[in-house]
Design a protein around this nucleic acid. Structure first.
Length: 613
RNA sequence: GGCCCCGUAGCUCAGUUGGAUAGAGCAACUGACUUCUAAUCAGUAGGUCUCAGGUUCGAAUCCUGACGGGGUCACCA
């Protein structure tokens, strides 16, 4: 039997019996008892005071007495102010323990028959993945895992932004400057090579722009368009896009390339395919290193024309309206927003047009019950607009869409900007954390008997655990500062700290060799053991809560508290050399249960557990 | 300026469907390894929970208003 629901039922009955009062669910508040008090669970009696017109002390006292007498679960109580602290019979905790050990999928909620769709990662193909992508990817992966643990059928997807002006810039620079360089010829990973030429383009463009600024035309533009008192520097920063579109020779070439691509021109298409191919090979390596996968990959080149049908339908039903210049708009003032464009005056799509189309196609294909988009918080407004348009269009799934908005990652030196070369590269970063894990493991020793390949695998697991836990322990919506030193910390609230608890258990289990004696159902438990079991018992609820909030940090923080409790227990109690064989068996079982929850919970965060460290 | 998010110890963060004396980690200092892995444990020190009102038996948590920081408001994606 479940302790909590049993306890709730017993309390409800006794309140009815003693005071002739039916307690409502919202007033039936039961929490694990705080450390500094005696007891396992605490019932808060304050909400009853008004109704029953008795003092908190009297209510708690009467209820405590009755529970000890009538409830199988309760063996003792004490009252502090309006808090009734209840001690639970050890045998119920032993049954919790048996339940965990007997359930290889402990924490997994039953299949609910619903489909959960999640879009994450969604990279551009003109540059490699960086730290910001890692946060996105880890969040997406983890929410997908958590959804699955909640009984959903999960479909993980990403939209690859494989077309557009950005990739054309890389292509153009490659044609101009690369002299036929390939990943094979240069030994550079494909996505990095393409990124290199994106940077080359930017350099060439900047130098072209600089000379233009010094020219008469440039000076003229500043004179005519500069705002009152605006510094030249600021003006030219602001004016960059205009320059690119109207005056730049490189800009013109890049745009021509885009048009050639849209016209399906052979040479451009073939270069595009080649370079994107390099990028995909590179991405595949990075995703694999991060340990993530996708079920369905959508390429923007296949979908960028989608959504136009949706626009014409919307025009007919009056959701959209056309301006004189032929551009199409939606009026969102009734939901507190502006008018937004959904189709350009030349009839081409804007970003949101594609999103409208993609959402519709995706729903037709999968009939998802919920869909989450994992995208940075700078796009919050965009998703508000998207969801509201879908609502207006009468899409039945519109209410089941959610934008999981996460804060951007800053560096200690400021914002990451790819144009300014201040990004932290994903591949380099992973390499570094693994290297750091190796250094500190070698310094510490303890892996002597293992093969080199086993050691390398352990360093990888530890390094990635440090990095991943560092990123995912923080509430997604908070902007975070990435300090490279802290990200490889392996002490305190870190991935390796949690791994270490697991490794200690593995070590014990290796040394346990065989069963000792069975322990009986009324073996007494130490308070520390009850505390651990109370915590393990709450694991399925943690999974539920994490999904309800779409927040993996809930799981991360819980994992830390489990590991912390175990470390203390390990320090305070002997396990293999406990007083009796029965106690040894009991403690080994507790270790096994802790290990099970640690391993499963960390898996939800995409973190692997080593057997040694 | 409108809308959204954030503000808790020196630093990084938990805690926010209202519950006990607001918790961790890092950094600092002290102690514990011939004993199951010290990537550990224990202790000291560190707080007007940004501020001001309000609701409540009870507010870091809910409401109102300030203040500070960030994001966004493109025929960009």
């Amino acid at each position: 039997m479940d302790i909590l629901s049993g306890l709730a039922a017993d309390i409800k009955n006794q309140v009815q019996h003693l005071f002739d009062y039916e307690i409502s669910q919202e007033h039936l508040i039961i929490n694990p008892t705080n450390k500094e008090f005696e007891g396992d669970y605490t019932f808060v009696v304050f909400p009853l005071v008004k109704q029953l017109k008795k003092s908190p002390q009297d209510i708690a006292d009467g209820l405590g007495k009755a529970l000890v007498a009538e409830s199988q679960l309760v063996t003792g109580y004490n009252v502090v102010k309006g808090f009734l602290n209840l001690s639970i019979d050890s045998k119920y905790f032993l049954s919790v323990l048996k339940g965990i050990l007997g359930d290889e999928n402990y924490g997994q909620h039953p299949d609910n028959g619903q489909t959960f769709m999640i879009e994450y990662s969604s990279p551009n193909t003109n540059k490699p993945l960086h730290l910001g992508h890692i946060r996105n990817i880890l969040l997406g992966w983890s929410v997908a895992k958590i959804a699955s643990a909640n009984g959903y059928k999960v479909i993980k997807t990403k939209v690859v932004n494989d077309r557009g002006i950005a990739i054309c810039k890389s292509m153009l620079a490659w044609k101009k400057f690369a002299d036929g360089e390939t990943p094979e010829s240069s030994g550079i990973k494909g996505d990095h090579l393409v990124g290199k030429y994106y940077v080359e383009f930017e350099k060439a463009f900047q130098s072209e722009y600089k000379s233009w600024q010094a020219s008469d035309d440039g000076a003229q533009a500043y004179k005519e368009n500069g705002k009152e008192g605006e510094l030249e520097e600021n003006f030219y920063k602001r004016y960059k896009n205009t320059y690119f579109n109207q005056f730049s020779a490189l800009g013109k070439e890049a745009r021509e390339m885009l048009i050639a691509w849209e016209d399906n021109q052979q040479e451009t298409r073939s270069l595009w395919e080649t370079m994107n191919g390099w990028v995909y090979d590179g991405f595949a390596t990075t995703y694999k290193a991060l340990g993530v996968e996708f079920d369905d990959i959508v390429y923007e080149s296949d979908t960028y024309l989608l959504g136009k049908d949706t626009i014409s339908d919307g025009l007919e039903t009056g959701v959209f309206y056309k301006k004189e210049d032929n551009s199409v708009w939606v009026d969102l003032e009734d939901v507190g927003m502006d008018h937004k464009i959904v189709l350009r005056s030349d009839g081409t799509s804007v970003y949101i047009t594609q999103d409208l189309g993609t959402a519709a196609v995706r729903y037709d294909k999968y009939k998802f019950d919920r869909q989450v988009y994992v995208v940075a918080d700078e796009q919050e407004y965009h998703f508000q607009v998207l969801f509201n348009i879908l609502k207006k269009l009468g899409a039945e799934y519109a209410d089941n869409l959610y934008h999981l908005s996460y804060g951007m990652v800053d560096l200690t030196t400021g914002k990451m900007k790819s144009r300014e070369g201040t990004v932290v590269d994903a591949d380099v970063l992973m390499e570094q954390v693994i290297e750091t894990a190796r250094d500190s493991a070698e310094e510490r020793g303890g892996l002597e008997g293992l093969q080199e390949s086993e050691k390398a695998d352990i360093y990888r697991k530890i390094g990635l655990a440090a990095l991943k836990y560092f990123l995912i322990k923080i509430n997604p919506r908070k902007r975070m500062v990435f300090d490279p030193k802290e990200s490889v910390d392996m002490q305190g609230t870190t991935g390796p700290y949690i791994q270490n608890a697991y490794v200690r258990i593995q070590s014990i289990l290796r040394k346990a060799n065989g069963e000792k004696g069975a322990y009986s159902d009324d073996t007494a438990l130490e308070n520390a053991e009850k505390d651990i079991l109370v915590m393990l018992l709450s694991y399925p609820d943690v999974i539920k809560e994490a999904f309800a909030k779409y927040d993996p940090s809930t799981v991360a923080n819980y994992m830390y508290s489990v590991a912390k409790s175990f470390h203390k227990y390990y320090h305070d109690y002997r396990i293999l050399s406990a007083e009796t064989d029965e106690t040894v068996s009991l403690r080994i079982d507790i270790c096994k249960a802790v290990a099970r929850v640690l391993e499963k919970g960390m898996d939800l965060l995409g973190i692997e557990m080593p057997s040694y460290m």
